[in-house]
Design a protein around this nucleic acid. Structure first.
Lengths: 183, 183
DNA sequence: GTCTATACCTTGATAGAC
DNA sequence: GTCTATCAAGGTATAGAC
């Protein structure tokens, strides 16, 4: 992938997380990168192509992280996940799911599919860590691991949304409580 | 408020919850109601005015519900809240907070303020019910009631978002687990 | 209160030169 | 790969008649 193309995707990712997919335009990309509208269209003929790539990029990054965390105990791996969200919160960004899910019905079929894939992969990963962590007595919770994964993931996602509206401290209160509840 | 004006607000509310605030247009309102673009602008000069009214309407409805539920035990009142979200899920809608928070920075100041007010009122109400319910031994949970309110509210909000992407059963799994955890 | 008509802008997208 | 130039479409919003 060329350097320009990478810059476009990176900036688009930020814009999606800050303003939403339908609220940013090609101009928001071409102006800061000091290229023309048509140059962006050369790399991504349709906005939908750009959106799909942004989600794909996030999937790759998640896979890299998972690989990097592999040696850690399960409770620490989950803490690492929380830290990723914390970083987003610090930058005033919501996660991709939180940003794209409300507009889901306005998205192209490829974007919808990729978003589903992302959600499933993250939930499956978290459920597995929860289950293993519980077996090793590193974590404590009731019910199915997948249900617990749903709860934690929704806590993290919406904490970024609420933080934006009510102030960034909301995220810390939520993430601390989530981790305490697992002990 | 005139009949037409009420219809406009009601439809706008649905559109916000289904497509997002930035993704619907005055045409999406004037066409189904069989009036002209300008008629909508007569009632709401700017789109922001319409958005503010939609949130105000939600606040009123919440206040009515709270009043209606007043006689019930605290655990039942919280179940009523869950049922409100369940109804949204059935209609494929997300809640106002879930829809508007991602686009928060693109909203007008009055809309931002009203949205903050809505979030605060709902959280304060929920925290109070949790605290009272715990004192009466109707509910069981650890930590501050407000933190628990944050957890539950984020679970409900994001469950609607995730349901839209991964299928409506997600909401049921989450809401059941939330209620079980309180016992 | 609702209409017709329209101004004005931004958007995503394309054609063709370099 | 990037540019200039341009397009059609759709958006919000307004003016003025009825």
């Amino acid at each position: 992938m060329s350097e320009t193309k990478e810059k476009i995707v990176a900036l688009a990712g930020q814009l999606v997380r800050k303003k939403g997919f339908n609220a940013f335009s090609y101009k928001d990309i071409s102006d800061p990168l000091e290229i023309r509208n048509a140059a962006v269209h050369y790399h991504f003929p349709a906005k939908s192509d750009l959106g799909t790539e942004v989600i794909g990029c996030e999937l790759e990054k998640f896979a890299e992280n998972v690989e990097k965390w592999k040696g850690l105990p399960e409770d620490k791996q989950i803490m690492k996940l929380v830290e990723v969200f914390q970083k987003h919160n610090k930058n005033g960004m919501v996660c991709l799911m939180g940003s794209l899910a409300p507009d889901f019905e306005t998205l192209s079929a490829p974007m919808q599919k990729k978003l589903q894939q992302m959600g499933n992969e993250m939930l499956d990963w978290l459920a597995e860590k929860l289950e293993k962590g519980r077996r090793k007595k590193l974590l404590r919770f009731e019910g199915h691991a997948y249900d617990r994964a749903l709860l934690i993931m929704t806590n993290l996602q919406s904490s970024l949304l609420l933080s934006r509206v009510l102030g960034p401290s909301v995220f810390n209160r939520i993430s601390e409580r989530v981790l305490k509840d697992l002990k």
